[in-house]
């Protein structure tokens, strides 16, 4: 019994957008991390989506996160000889995270999440209107 049609597609999109927001949060949190697990400066993460058949395939393709990859563009190199991660010339490589870009990504994922919530709200309202037939 499927009461709200196409809700699983929207639910998958909500999960994917939340994942995107989580990755933006990670990027912002690590905006000044000069020592990642591999010993180098933190590289910002990028989420890419792919479409998939929705879990119960009731007419529509959902979306999921296909991969979270590293943006390997070089970060800013600053002169800071007192820094523990400075090389022999006193230069430190900073992460390639740009806070402005991350904020734009954050807003974008937030708006996309809202758009999917609007779909949920409208689908539910349509079902409720249909239930009130005969009143």
């Amino acid at each position: 019994m499927n009461i709200i049609s196409g809700i699983n597609v929207t639910a998958s999109a909500l999960s994917a957008e939340k994942m995107r927001m989580d990755v933006v949060a990670e990027n912002i949190a690590n905006a000044h991390t000069t020592h990642d697990v591999d010993g180098h400066a933190y590289k910002r993460k990028v989420v890419s989506f792919e479409s998939m058949i929705a879990p119960d395939a009731d007419g529509g393709k959902g979306v999921r996160v296909s991969q979270v990859s590293n943006d390997n563009s070089p970060g800013e190199v600053i002169f800071n000889p007192g820094h523990p991660d400075a090389d022999k010339d006193g230069m430190v490589e900073m992460p390639n995270v740009n806070i402005a870009t991350e904020m734009v990504d954050l807003l974008s994922s937030s708006r996309a999440y809202e758009a999917n919530l609007a779909v949920v709200r409208n689908a539910k309202q349509m079902a409720m209107k249909a239930l009130s037939i005969g009143h």
Binding site: I4, I7, A11, L14, S15, K18, L117, V120, A127, L131
Partner: peptide, 25 residues
Amino acid sequence: NLHQAMISMQEASLAFSLMVEVRNK
């Protein structure tokens, strides 16, 4: 997965309303 919980709650609520409508009829 907050949204999944909310969606399944709404779905259950709607299914219940449908059942009540059928019962009323």
